[in-house]
């Protein structure tokens, strides 16, 4: 059960696996922000770098393709919306809709940026143990006033832990309904209602049971948290990322 998605940790011993999560988190955010600001040349370069990293951490190509299948549908929509909405020199004219050159290039740019962000996220998640991620978030949130960083950290780890459970329950419920011929009903709203309610209820019940189980194990917010240590490599990589980002924006 629960083999779930590509967005999960891959055990390994690469430099990225060993990197201090605080630095990795900062690097990832920097990369994503830069991506939004760059043009085609920068994007090409970044994609190249990300591709090499994906190969380096031995990311399974099959999962990558399987996972991007759904994402590509979203990209297609974005692309179409973009190419139809931009003004400028017409490329083709179909009835009352016009596709412009600028629209096409805009659409391609946005899609490429999104794709790069997804790659960055994939690399981050694949090389980061969820428990250390929560420690890093806790560390970054510490100076922010009015945010209970311990609580946020526990929430993050519970979210990560709950994802497979919810997905699994949704799949199970869907299968059970298929077995009883729900596919004969053509109304998508009816089907959505029939799937969403049971999944929600089951999720709440599970959450309830989990909170009792956590209580039974003395849950408090003043917990021991993991120690993170930064080394020379972490600073080197972060420096490299900053340099790369500056180069791409200019």
């Amino acid at each position: 059960m629960a083999d779930v998605t590509a967005f999960s940790y891959l055990t390994g011993a690469s430099a990225l696996h060993k990197m201090d999560v605080r630095f990795k988190l900062a690097s990832m955010i920097l990369c994503s922000l830069t991506t939004v600001k760059t043009q085609f040349a920068g994007l090409f370069f970044l994609t190249l770098v990300l591709g090499i990293i994906l190969l380096y951490i031995r990311f399974p190509l099959k999962t990558l393709i399987r996972e991007l299948r759904y994402f590509s549908v979203l990209l297609l929509f974005v692309f179409i919306a973009r190419s139809l909405s931009a003004p400028g020199l017409p490329f083709i004219k179909l009835g009352f809709v016009t596709v412009t050159y600028k629209g096409i290039s805009d659409g391609a740019l946005v899609c490429w940026r999104l794709l790069n962000i997804v790659f960055t996220g994939l690399i981050f998640v694949a090389t980061t143990r969820p428990s250390t991620l929560k420690t890093a978030v806790e560390w970054w949130l510490k100076p922010v006033p009015f945010i209970p960083e311990q609580r946020v950290a526990v929430m993050i780890s519970l979210m990560i832990r709950f994802m497979p459970v919810i997905l699994e329950q949704a799949r199970e419920t869907a299968d059970a309904q298929k077995a009883r011929g729900v596919e004969n009903r053509k109304n998508p709203f009816y089907r959505l209602k029939k799937i969403a309610l049971p999944v929600l209820i089951r999720t709440f019940v599970t959450a309830d049971e989990l909170s009792v189980a956590m209580d039974a194990r003395c849950y408090t917010e003043k917990r021991t948290s993991m120690k993170l240590t930064a080394g020379k490599n972490d600073w080197l990589i972060l420096g490299g990322v900053i340099l790369l980002c500056c180069l791409m924006v200019v």
């Binding site: 832990r161 989990l210 189980a213 917990r223």
Partner: peptide
């Protein structure tokens, strides 16, 4: 508990066992 699935808190086996001791500080 009666339902083994709903008492797992950690993302890995190690993390799950560590949950209690972490709460004890």
């Amino acid at each position: 508990f009666q339902n083994a699935d709903s008492q797992i808190v950690g993302e890995t086996v190690y993390d799950d066992v560590a949950f209690g001791p972490e709460n004890l500080g």
